[in-house]
């Protein structure tokens, strides 16, 4: 029996990988390592969702209620009372697409940025690439996005809006939406280790930036000479893009593209920065 084990073992020798731990690792190696842990990422997503929806029986109901209430309040105050116009689509559809994208973004920022502090006990005791933590949080917040989207579908049927062929671009904007949230989330989570008070300003910033993003007002109310400010805001482009591809009634400007590219650059930088400070996290707890 023992002999058999030994020979089995010898057969396995050739396939064994040699891992080198030293003080430097390249970003490509790091990303590859993260991808090796994809099963863990999904397991963490599953855990997050399970914990979130098992602790409260109301969980699912609340996540339906929240978009419905905001839909009602925003359409009533901004659409009916203040009479903010749109660029084409009916106001409730217009504002709801904006809210979906915006909330998805701000959830990702909030969850991803606090993900490391939340799991600090893990960081000290188990090894896995820590980038998985903010990423899994971002992925688990997608469930909310899906819930909001189903409501949107109902809303569009109600208003009799046919989705246009441009819907093929939808995944692109969705990816940009996640990427933007994740970029900020990763930066904040990596910084939060040294300066924990950074996390306190996240809710405040989220509340403020909804004002400067065309969520409940159309791009057209911004004067021509200030529109460059709009193009600097990637979220404005993403929301506009969603509207453009879902309803086909709102315009999309290619001026947003540089902003998108900038987000992608920042995203790569955020992984690079995260990788560099990853090992300091375990020390600084």
């Amino acid at each position: 029996m023992l002999k058999k084990n030994v020979s089995d073992h010898d057969a396995g020798v050739a396939t064994k990988e040699i891992v080198t731990i030293s003080s430097r690792i390249s970003i490509i190696q790091y990303v590859r390592k993260c991808l090796q842990y994809n099963e863990l990422t999904w397991a963490l997503v599953k855990k997050d969702l399970k914990v979130k929806y098992s602790q409260t029986k109301l969980g699912l109901l609340l996540s339906l209620l929240q978009p419905l209430v905001s839909l009602f309040l925003f359409s009533f105050f901004f659409g009916n009372l203040m009479k903010l116009g749109t660029d084409g689509s009916p106001y409730p559809v217009f504002v709801f697409i904006g809210l979906t994208s915006w909330y998805s973004f701000s959830y990702i920022v909030a969850y991803a940025s606090s993900s490391l502090i939340e799991s600090n006990y893990l960081i000290k005791k188990v090894y896995f690439p820590k980038l998985i933590l903010p990423v899994s949080k971002a992925l688990s917040s997608l469930l909310e996005f899906i819930i909001w989207m189903t409501i949107l579908v109902v809303l569009m049927i109600f208003y009799g809006i046919q989705p246009s062929y441009r819907l093929v671009f939808f995944p692109l904007f969705l990816i940009m939406n996640i990427l933007t949230g994740l970029t900020i989330g990763i930066w904040l989570s990596a910084l939060s280790f040294r300066k924990r008070d950074i996390l306190h300003i996240v809710p405040y910033m989220a509340g403020l930036t909804i004002i400067v993003t065309p969520v409940f007002y159309p791009n057209s109310i911004i004067p021509e000479h200030l529109s460059f400010l709009l193009y600097c805001n990637p979220m404005a482009g993403i929301i506009q893009g969603f509207r453009w591809c879902i309803t086909g009634m709102d315009p999309f400007s290619l001026n947003f593209l540089p902003g998108f590219l900038f987000v992608i650059l920042l995203f790569v930088l955020s992984i690079w920065y995260f990788k560099n400070v990853e090992y300091k996290m375990a020390e600084q707890l």
Partner: peptide
């Protein structure tokens, strides 16, 4: 691989598992 050495190199052949503390990766709700 929880901490990085300041200098030097570690080579590990094969898969490695470490328990620094039992039950640390567990989640109470699961």
């Amino acid at each position: 691989d929880i901490l990085r050495p300041t200098s030097g190199e570690v080579r590990i052949r094969g898969q490695l598992a470490a328990i620094l503390e039992i039950g640390v990766g567990f989640h109470q709700e699961l």
